[in-house]
Design a protein around this nucleic acid. Structure first.
Length: 192
DNA sequence: TTTGTGATGCACT
DNA sequence: GTGCATCACAAAA
């Protein structure tokens, strides 16, 4: 269920913090792209001194967006096939948006994803970008400005944590965040 | 239900 | 040449 509270677009200071602080705060926010989107239910933090982060080895052509303005979008190609969406935080850090609960423009998502199963539309970073139609061209756009939109509840959602997925370094850090009891995450969060 | 593997682009060593 | 911040589908059990 979407969090029914007063929503507002995060300001610049919101994104000028470390990704570890921003990532849990994004859970419960409504994210859309060309008016297609939903509630963020899963995110991961990547820091500049984090071996699993694309920014760890410094600035390059591919990761330039990560060193840009906080609140910018960073999109990269994964495994040659998929795109993944991040929101840039303090210099060199970013939050990977891993899953959303579909709310707006569901028919468009079903068409792009070639499935009608709501739970398979956006339950993973690659699926999410395919469902919304996000690509490399969206790099360095502002997350709060058209075609993107982001609005967050004024009250913090119930967040659970876990280990990040699909990485080979710094695997033990609990930098994955999810909306408690959401059925729309990419994988279950292990119970304590 | 869980596990294995191919597809595929490109930065980096 | 290697290694991915992945996904879908096949095969096992």
């Amino acid at each position: 269920m979407p969090i029914d509270q007063k929503m507002k677009t995060p300001d610049l200071p919101f994104f000028q913090r470390n990704a570890i602080e921003v990532a849990p705060d994004l859970i419960g926010c409504l994210l859309s792209y060309h008016n297609v989107g939903g509630t963020i239910v899963e995110s991961e933090a990547y820091e500049i001194d984090d071996p699993a982060s694309h920014s760890f080895r410094g600035l390059s052509k591919a990761n330039a967006a990560m060193f840009g303005q906080p609140g910018n979008v960073y999109v990269y190609r994964s495994y040659g096939i998929h795109f993944c969406l991040n929101i840039v935080c303090r210099r060199g850090s970013a939050v990977l948006i891993r899953a959303i609960e579909p709310v707006m423009g569901i028919p468009s998502m079903q068409e792009r994803r070639r499935t009608s199963d709501i739970r398979l539309l956006c339950s993973g970073p690659g699926k999410l970008c395919q469902a919304l139609g996000i690509s490399l061209e969206d790099n360095e756009k502002l997350i709060g400005k058209w075609p993107f939109s982001l609005s967050c509840p004024t009250i913090t959602a119930s967040v659970v944590t876990g280990r990040r997925i699909g990485i080979s370094k710094a695997v033990d850090l609990p930098w994955r965040f999810g909306l408690e009891a959401s059925r729309f995450v990419s994988r279950k969060f292990l119970l304590d």
